[in-house]
Design a protein around this nucleic acid. Sequence first.
DNA 1: TTAGGGTTACAG
DNA 2: CTGTAACCCTAA
Length: 326
Amino acid sequence: MGVPKQRWTSEEEAALRAGIARHGVGKWRTILKDPEFSSTLSSRSNVDLKDKWRNMNVIVSTSSSRDKGKNAVKRTRTTPKNNDHTVAVSTVTSDIDDGIVDEKRVPSVPSETQNTSNPKKAQSRLDNIIMEAIKSLNEPTGSHRTTIANYIEEQYWPPSDFDHLLSAKLKDLATSGKLIKVNRKYRIAPSSPNSEGRSPKMLLLEDVQRAPIKIGNNDSRTLTRSQVDAELAHIATMTAEEASAAAARAVAEAEAIMAEAEAAATEAEVAEADAQAAQAFAEAAFLTLKNRNTAKLVIVLVHESFVISLILLSHVEPDFIIPSAT
DNA sequence: TTAGGGTTACAG
DNA sequence: CTGTAACCCTAA
């Protein structure tokens, strides 16, 4: 028929992103009904939104596979060893004031002191986040620092000194040629040296130092609502800095635990072990965070890799979700 | 209505 | 031919 394929325009993509930021992932119908986006997305159905979002989140398996060998590997498959942990996320609560996004990813930014053991992927996570932000903003003339900061604040949970870090990083990236600065606006350099190694929206918890952490493998089942509430109450009294520091430590420990779980899974080399390890990891991670007085924790398990998302907000309803794998 | 698998159209 | 993005189908 006359409409071969309706390619998504950047306006539509922006509307979708904004809609998701406002209503959350999965609320396609809601987004569509929002007068704010209904106009630009008038020619799209809720299913279209879902599909588009899926496409935008496709895990880019860092190509490098189309050389001479024929890698018939699915792109969603990550190699068991030294692989990356895709952090995606989802969840949310919404009753907070407007402007608060439901979906946040947690960058382990607070401690920018971890690149001592990996000169290869020298890029820090913040760098990746910045690149992603600029890419997502997709402004033809580049984006202002404030715009970038705003985007990151919506997508992640920035540390208190984030603005300062951002400025430093932007300057650094511009100096190193990864970004081009024009009239106070930053844009991705055309031939970015690492144009291959970036996954659009994945944050990686990577190469964690193995730590002697023991996974409490018992009946530490899902915590009850009241337990979480109690923790929450405690959190409410914490200062942003305290919570921030606690979260940073929690993330570090969670990463270590993840390394453990991953090792276990590798040894067992069985899908089932995968699930078990993931389960153990989830429980351990949660306990760790619980002890750290984290306000809100959301753990999502996915079949192929362990996906963990930690959300720290001081005054929101706690969510605790552990969908089963497979 | 949504999530996920499958199919088709298009570009490189 | 292959990979990607839009679109379709259907179970839950």
